[in-house]
Design a protein around this nucleic acid. Sequence first.
DNA 1: GAGCACTGC
Length: 808
Amino acid sequence: MPEKVRTVFANSDDDKAAEPKISLQTTEETRGKKKKNKKRKREEPEASQNDDHDETSDTPAPKKQVETPVAVPKNQANAAPQSTEAPAAKPYPKSKSKPFTDTKLNWMPLREKAKALLEVRRKLPVFENADRIRSLLREQDVMLLVGETGSGKSTQIPQFLVDEFWCRPVPAQITRNGKTEKKMVGGCIAITQPRRVAAITLARRVAEEMGTPLGSHSPASKVGYSVRFDTSTSPSTRVKFLTEGMLLQEMLHDPYLTKYSAVVVDEVHERGINVDLTLGFLRNLVSGNKEGRGGVPLKVVVMSATADMESLTGFFQEGYRIAGPEKKAIENGAEAGPEDSPSSRDISVCHIKGRQFPVKTIYSPAPVHDFVDAALKVIFQIHQKEPMPGDILVFLTGQETVEALEHLVNEYAMAMDPALPKILVLPLFAALPQAAQQRVFAPAPPRTRKVVLSTNIAETSVTVSGVRHVIDCGKAKIKQFRTRLGLDSLLVKPISKSAAIQRKGRAGREAPGQCFRLYTEKDYLALDETNTPEILRCDLSQALLNMKARGVDDIVRFPFLTRPPREALEKALLQLLNINALQEDGTISAVGLHIAKLPLTPTLGRVLLAAAENGHECLLDVIDIISCLSVENIFLNTTSEEKKEAAEAARRDLYRREGDHLTMLMTVRAYASEHADRKAWAERHLVSHRAMQSVMDVRKQLRTQCRQAKLLTNEALNRTSLHDPSPILILQSFLAGFATNTARLVPDGSYRTIVGNQTVAIHPSSVLYGKKLEAIMYNEFVFTNRSYARGVSAVQMDWVGEALAGKD
DNA sequence: GAGCACTGC
């Protein structure tokens, strides 16, 4: 249903009621505007392609767009996703000696580009609402904004707000823990994003539009971004794009977000656990007393692509209700601005229409049993009937189904009528090497139709150009943490309506399109409205530790947008108790506080601290291993048989009989000591170069943090000679966090978990696969077709006993 | 004999 609703921006001229007011969409003015929109679409479909960030997420601000703002074929822009640096981002070296006037001169071309871009911006659906959004936010602290794809909300909203009077830094007196301090509060707008690429791409784009250099490139820069391993801001930054995790991290140090006048939370509908935590903390900030901010209000804009805003309005209203009808007097005497009038408690809901071409939906007349087979038929049906150009995007569940369909399509294509255009089949999934992924962005060769077979990576993370036909199998693999069993399950499940709409929308980005749903309309109507929030699907220990570290001692009273079941919360608390991150009374311990600041799961954080007690050498080795465990799989999947044998031989010298942990250590050591050509080394050993680069990033970050925490000395870090690792010390350090992730061999030759007595098999990707050992410790316990332990090492039963008894 | 997608001072 949401896809059929056509709404315009909220009509906010209604009388203001005393009760918290929600201005809902009105449909009256729609008609005229709709027509206008339609016309616009025909005239400049290209302009709409780069204004919403999910469209550019894989195509950083196409530079052509800057030079000729009118017409850029999307294909072209996508064809070179590597040319990331827009010209505006380049000209400022970090050199401090550069005179300021120089910067000023270099500004001129930026200004001109910004002026040209303004023409494009003016045509965005969101633009005509600028004044209304500004005036609502002058009165109110919270705004909810529904903006469909292509509305331009992510790039424009911060620019609408940055020059508002309330967005200037103000001197304030802050009282905390009885101490009063003078400080500037506000001045900056934060915009959160679920993904790194989006944060960086948007920052680049907005910097161009504002005509200022990006981030740390110049002291005059107004736009910056902050993602893990990559921060580009300057003291003058006013608009900052960051990942949700990064904002949470900032909040650990500055709970009242005193740098910011506003926080814009974008893409809320994706409902990652970080966004849920962010919203909980923000609700406490807007509805609580503002002492920590010296009485200066914080504006919160929550943006989503789906119309389900009722739960969000209720969520923020409840915050106001609990805070009480009267505002607490501000004790330190900060002046009461207009924000303190009752209307600051109103919440407005605004709808902005997107810019999409119409997409026709075709349902399967009867239930489909084999969606790979059904997809095959539809692909050739489209290919025979539909004119060129018009590529096909097929949503499947995983690598397995992608590869199965790939073979089938290629097979059928060979027997195809030679008079028909050719078919180019391109698989797309996250584990695919980067180079192979890039192939889907290149436009199809002449007289060829691209058929992209994708997992749900193409649903949000990646935009494929040229697509006019979408085939949706209606399913996806979803990871679900099962509290009772303490394991992750990766199961094929039906998608939600909003995911189905998202998939369908991928056909209408450049021209009218069609979407074939390989399920019946009845099935569609029975789907859940939205995706299950991650907070209901994952292990909560990290989230709880973060809350505890922020002083939220009573978890039950935390404002959850969706409250996790009690059992899941209890399990997480128990786990934190087990690793001594919490004290018996449930408050955070010194160890817990330390772990919370590490960019690791609580368990891995605990391991790191345990290793620190076993000496510098052990800590350095454990950091190497932890770095591997906290990134995607470093070992590539073998594709062909010949390659496999060569790789097995090359990898042989890395394998350690102690298990995967020590094997990872040897891999990091070998990679790090390869100075000539790491990429070639990685290819030879069938190790993912991309993953190893992340490993090295994490390793560097952890080493730095350990040095700052005085767990490592410079001397230990700079030592060049390699010591012999001590497997015993390393594995015992791991048991400090993973004592409950252990299993012992039983007489029938299988393994049973020590806690829970469940059957578990060593995953085939492990170096210990097929081995019979006294006991094993594993990093992960997952269920796919059966229960597997992944990341496995051999341990001794008496070590496990000691670790479980807490005598580490 | 096997690998949905994201993310972190």
